[in-house]
């Protein structure tokens, strides 16, 4: 598998008035494989959002390089090529829509790129179908639920025909139903259209069926691995102020209490199975 996005020794500092520069990211390096589904977690101030904005050149690293499909985000000539390939969905659905009508909002991206009219219409159709919102083409986002608005925002990014989709805490402001809607759409896009997804979140349940979880802490990568590798660490997670999914926490607690149970349990089904096995053993 080839690399979609690579960070090489990236640091990023904000200018602050009092202390000069404050580092939001310190020497972060990792590569993201094409077609993978990666979750980035971490408590507030861990550098998650800064990381997201570095991935499509909204921010340029102070030190180091960010390469997107071989293009360097420092290079101003190719910045739009990067932004076209890396679609981004933000936290507040209301603050990322430019038009009062759904189809006009989705057409905004391809219009900016100078895409032909017929092709724009085709892209709007496809994008709306991909997020299951075809019936809302002519309506206004104002009266929609958060989950619906966020799906429109995803469609807006999809209209650019991106290869990577970055979700910057896009589920944070949604209710459980809206979150499930958005996650369903994103998973399908990853599986069916092969779009690489980088999902920044603080809901651990959303990370369980990802290919990889990156835990950020204090501007650096603290843990990096598959969900079972990361959440199998149990107590160590507390140091990074993240709480593992409930079942994983339960497994860890049971194991500490002396039961013979695998600590790396991270779905309800696995938990049920392990408990049944334990009970039948007695």
């Amino acid at each position: 598998m080839s690399t979609a996005i690579g960070l090489y020794g990236v640091s990023f500092a904000y200018d602050t008035e009092e202390e000069g520069q404050a580092y939001a990211l310190k020497d972060v390096s990792f590569e993201i494989e094409k077609g993978s589904f990666v979750a980035v977690v971490g408590h507030n101030g861990s550098g998650k959002s800064t990381l997201a904005r570095l991935l499509n050149g909204l921010l340029i690293p102070t030190v180091g390089r960010v390469k997107v499909f071989g293009y360097d985000t420092c290079d101003e000539d190719t910045i739009y090529e990067i932004r076209r390939r890396v679609g981004m969905v933000f936290q507040n659905p209301d603050n990322q829509m430019v038009a009062s009508v759904v189809e006009d909002d989705i057409a905004f991206g391809p219009e900016n790129l100078g895409v032909e009219r017929e092709e724009i219409i085709r892209r709007v159709d496809n994008a709306l179908a991909s997020v299951g919102m075809s019936d809302y083409r002519k309506s206004t986002p104002f009266r929609m639920s958060g989950g619906q608005k966020q799906r429109i925002a995803i469609a807006g990014a999809l209209a650019l025909c991106p290869e990577v989709l970055v979700l910057d805490e896009s589920t944070a402001m949604l209710d459980p139903k809206g979150r499930a809607e958005v996650m369903g759409v994103v998973r399908r896009l990853n599986r069916e259209q092969g779009i690489t997804v980088i999902h920044i979140t603080h809901y651990m349940e959303e990370t369980l069926d990802c290919d990889r979880v990156i835990v950020m802490d204090g501007g650096s990568v603290a843990l990096d691995g598959t969900p079972s590798e990361v959440f199998g660490r149990g107590e160590e997670l507390k140091r990074y102020k993240i709480s593992p999914p409930y079942v994983t926490w339960l497994a860890d607690a049971l194991a500490r209490a002396g039961l013979d149970i695998d600590r790396a349990i991270y779905t309800r089904e696995e938990m049920e199975e392990s408990l049944c096995r334990l009970l039948s053993k007695d």
Partner: peptide
């Protein structure tokens, strides 16, 4: 935030902006 969203969706990418409608 809106400024970031406009940038992320390639605002100003092409001098020849097209229109859907």
């Amino acid at each position: 935030e809106l400024a970031d969203a406009l940038d992320a969706r390639c605002y100003n990418a092409s001098p020849k902006r097209t229109r859907m409608k």
